[in-house]
Simulated assay, not measured.
Amino acid sequence: MKGQEWYQADDIAQEYDEKRFSRGGQLIDRREKAAVLDALGPLEDQDVLEIACGTGRFTVMLAQEGANVVGLDISAAMLQQGRRKAKVADVSGTLEFLRGDAGRLPFPDDHFDTVVAMRFFHLADDPAAFLSEMKRVSRERIVFDTFNRFSTRSVYNWALPMGSRLYSKSEVSVLLAKNALELVDVEDDFLVPYGLYRAIPNAFASPIRTIDRAIGRLPLSDHLMSVSYWNVRL
């Protein structure tokens, strides 16, 4: 995985949410959470695994929606932040945080209803193998996102501390076919790159987001969007 040493540092974990999901980044956080909830539907009593759960943004949200959740991440510092969030949200009894490797998931076959992997595939050195492992432990579906090759993200990708693996739609389609996964739906979003939203106050980011979404509804604009949210079934 790319950037493991950087990602596992204590100071990175402490500043992670503030740097990415404050200011205009609140709009990114809101959209990503909506994408996950829209894909999953009702979650009451569902068993969900989140891969690369980081500071628990999605893990805690899924527990609040009634799911039994396991959040797995390679960074002990990130997991500690997640446990604090769970305690504040009073959902500690319905979720568990584990340190582990997404390439060798410590669970039996068909153990979860759903596997979620957000902000993960852009770091994967062997995406087909990771997807295969997620399929192994899932009974029903997998939800994940990818950053797109033909998008504004490609302009500044080289400057990111962890880099990014960028995907074309055809590459993801090949990954799904190799793992015999059925595409249920894919949503594309964010013509304007994430970095701009994070750099400006929410008051300025909101009108930009309105324009971004309007352009996103135009024909063929999906080919230029920065991110895709994938919902697939076994």
Rank of each mutant, 00 (worst) to 15 (best):
A102C: 12
F147V: 11
R149P: 07
A117T: 08
A117K: 01
R99N: 15
D110E: 15
E171H: 04
A86G: 09
E96A: 10
Y156H: 15
V174H: 12
G93Q: 15
L123K: 03
N148S: 04
L123C: 12
G93L: 13
A129W: 11
D145H: 00
K178R: 15
T94M: 10
Q80S: 09
F121S: 02
L175D: 03
A124I: 06
D125G: 12
E133R: 01
G100Y: 02
L175W: 03
S138Y: 07
D109Y: 01
P108W: 11
T152D: 08
E171L: 04
F107C: 05
F130I: 14
E171I: 03
F121C: 05
G163N: 01
T146E: 00
V174F: 04
A129H: 02
D113Q: 06
G100W: 05
S173Y: 11
G163W: 02
D113E: 01
R83V: 14
L175P: 04
F144Y: 00
A89E: 04
L95P: 09
H111N: 14
A177K: 13
R153I: 12
D110P: 07
V115E: 00
S164K: 07
L160D: 05
S151Y: 13
F144K: 01
L160R: 06
T146C: 09
V172C: 05
L105T: 06
A177N: 14
A128L: 01
R141F: 08
D101W: 02
V116Y: 03
S164F: 02
D125F: 07
S138I: 04
L175R: 00
A128C: 04
L175C: 04
D125W: 13
